[in-house]
Design a protein around this nucleic acid. Structure first.
Lengths: 186, 186
DNA sequence: TTGCAAGGCTAATATAGTTAGCCTTCACGG
DNA sequence: CCGTGAAGGCTAACTATATTAGCCTTGCAA
């Protein structure tokens, strides 16, 4: 291996992720990323194919971290407690990474990124199955994830502008949902 | 008024909206919009401040239409039927306008656009109140909207990749939610 | 009839992403 | 020890796009 590398793909991804959160998606330039890791913009192309590729790598990184956070949250053994812990961890992660969370879940996002989160789907699905019964596990899981994702997205977008307590709305929704998915006639 | 205008703000907004849906957000250039309305790109600036402003106008247009669609759906007088009709209309609208719907609800979107939908919030809130009771109307409405928005967003993003019937998941979620928001102890 | 402003246009500028092509550094085989 | 080749920098150049500057024509209104 020749001349000392002055940076690495990992450093580029980390810088891109940080800048993305700090300045938003439109303000993220190859030049800024290059500055952050101490090289010139064209040198980035030795590591990433292009700007889209950098986005993909950043979002995969975010997805991996989210997977870890979710898996780490489900430890109590009690399904309701685990579901509460996982949804809270999910929301906490989104609040801590608002820009990249939103990008990761956005439509035109890279398929690769969202695919990563399939890994934690299995854990989640198992826990939901204990509440909703095996027949309704998949739709029940989708109901909870859709609600959580929608709530968080709207919250981050500032869409809850009719006043009221947003925390209370979260607790209300989660409480009602956890009851609602319980199998009444399985 | 001097020389015959060759276009109008409305035509520009309509062309922008159409191109946005057809080609996606990254492919929408001022040049393409100008071509679509029969002028040169710089002439657009006589009507819109800049590209962001064009986006704002397009998303406001979408929001206005969505408001109309939702209001038109709530006509039966029965709260459950109205809620089913409104959520179905909401989902149908999103499916018909996937790109602009997503943009409209996205975080960094223009505050103006989402603000328009506040108008239809009132109708929706009233109907939810008949189910959930006045005390829980706001959190209950937020629960349903969050679920619907999250479900649709994930659906459009292709995030439901574990197989299963997506229609069934929608029906399951909506059915359980409509029951769940009913006031058990108001 | 003359003035003036709306609303076109071309030309020019700035910013990004990206490519081309070169140069230096060292690990390694002879 | 020495030559070499590829990794990994860099500068310069190219392209696309938004946007601004400044001009020209048109036709209503005084």
């Amino acid at each position: 291996m020749p001349a000392h590398p002055q940076t690495s793909t990992a450093a580029i991804v980390a810088a891109g992720r940080r800048l993305l959160e700090e300045r938003g998606v439109d303000a993220l330039t190859m030049r800024d990323v290059a500055d952050a890791v101490g090289v010139r913009a064209p040198s980035l192309y030795k590591r990433v194919r292009n700007r889209s590729d950098l986005f993909r790598l950043v979002l995969e990184d975010v997805a991996d971290e989210l997977t870890g956070v979710l898996d780490a949250a489900a430890i109590s053994g009690d399904p309701v407690a685990d579901l509460r812990a996982m949804t809270a961890a999910y929301r906490g992660f989104a609040h801590a990474n608002p820009v990249t969370y939103t990008l990761m879940m956005a439509p035109q996002a890279v398929p690769g990124a969202t695919a990563r989160s399939v890994r934690s789907s299995a854990t989640f699905l198992n826990i939901v199955a204990q509440q909703a019964g095996p027949r309704h596990a998949l739709p029940a899981a989708r109901t909870i994830v859709a609600w959580a994702h929608g709530f968080i997205t709207m919250e981050l977008a500032g869409a809850f502008r009719l006043g009221g307590d947003v925390e209370q709305a979260w607790d209300f929704g989660l409480g009602r949902l956890l009851t609602a998915i319980r199998s009444p006639a399985d």
